[in-house]
Design a protein around this nucleic acid. Structure first.
Lengths: 185, 185
DNA sequence: CCGCTCATGTAACTGGTTACATGATTTA
DNA sequence: TAAATCATGTAACCAGTTACATGAGCGG
């Protein structure tokens, strides 16, 4: 799976994403990094403190980010920024984000689910599929909304991310329609 | 994330998938279950012994599967089959496979990747995207092959699973083409 | 008889998670 | 002034992984 960072300067996907956030959002606290993950609709990471704080600590030990204690009011806090070395590790990841194996096939829980759907009566299976289609329909709406929210960004990338979510959801819906048709008696 | 199975008879996704394999493939060894996951192109689980053996053990403790020692030749082995209780837990999972949160948005590593692509020079980013498109093109071919392999199955479900992979890959390709266009100077 | 597959099993590790605890600052 | 948010941090846990070890059976 994701390569460990011991041998070279390779980064796991979460490490790279954190480096990316620090790179993009300039000096920022770990709390802000967490927020970025928590607000993102991608379900892979929760942005839990227990993940982010130690990870950023490790990045600093490896010299990929550095921090400066700034005092906002009375409370001290640490603002992190990416170092040149971190920047180069990040670029290396951008140039080789993952092997073909990882990039290739997405894990779709619905695929697992459908695989066993004939353990249920046909008509029930069909109505469950209809339900899933509805849920995904709402997901489409959310993606469109998300897209509109980034309509005026200078960089198109956030918009494109929302577009990714939209296209994937639509593809799944079309697939589920096929599934439903295949489940006719 | 995935619910724990302590409170009720709920099953995690892997537990459910294992139950499904045992249900579908009749009495089978844990080794055979592992093979099923290892041969599957879905990257979520490796089918490692360290995952499957203890998990099946736990399922047996919970009364969801039972095993019988059969002796093939001289070597003893355990054949597992699903119990009525296991069957009902499995069906419960089929009826409520996941909350909207889990079902909703797929995690696409390419989405994370693209989000930071403007850390690279435009032309390099564009050529990286082209590379990704090519990789996904091969993935499409594999899915089509997979589809053909299940062309004569009695049940359409394996074919539909391959179809899911195909549609998702095609959607990602179309998306990457959009990304490439958006990266024009 | 050598190497591959079948089959079982365990130990060490990893990359996260939830949950908790603390306290400052801001907002209603 | 109470409640929400900002900000940091840690402990316990969990579901998986890799890697290793063992040994039977089988095909070339």
């Amino acid at each position: 799976m994701a390569k460990q960072s011991k041998t070279t300067n390779a980064a796991t996907e979460l490490e790279a994403a954190v480096l990316g956030v620090v790179w993009r959002d300039g000096p920022c606290t770990r709390y802000a990094i967490r927020q970025d993950f928590r607000e993102s609709r991608a379900p892979r990471w929760s942005g839990s403190a227990g993940a982010i704080y130690p990870l950023v600590q490790r990045l600093e030990l490896r010299g990929l980010v550095r921090s400066k204690s700034t005092v906002r009011g009375k409370r001290p806090q640490r603002d992190y920024r990416i170092t040149p070395r971190g920047r180069s590790v990040f670029e290396r990841w951008l140039r080789a984000p993952f092997g073909p194996a990882e990039a290739a096939l997405l894990h779709d829980p619905l695929r697992t689910w459908v695989l066993f759907l004939d353990a249920l009566p046909l008509d029930e299976a069909r109505s469950l599929v209809s339900g899933a289609i509805e849920v995904l329909g709402q997901e489409v709406l959310r993606s469109k909304e998300d897209f509109r929210e980034h309509a005026n960004d200078k960089s198109p990338l956030s918009r494109l991310a929302a577009r990714n979510a939209l296209l994937l959801s639509q593809a799944r819906i079309r697939w589920l329609v096929e599934v439903k048709e295949a489940l006719q008696p």
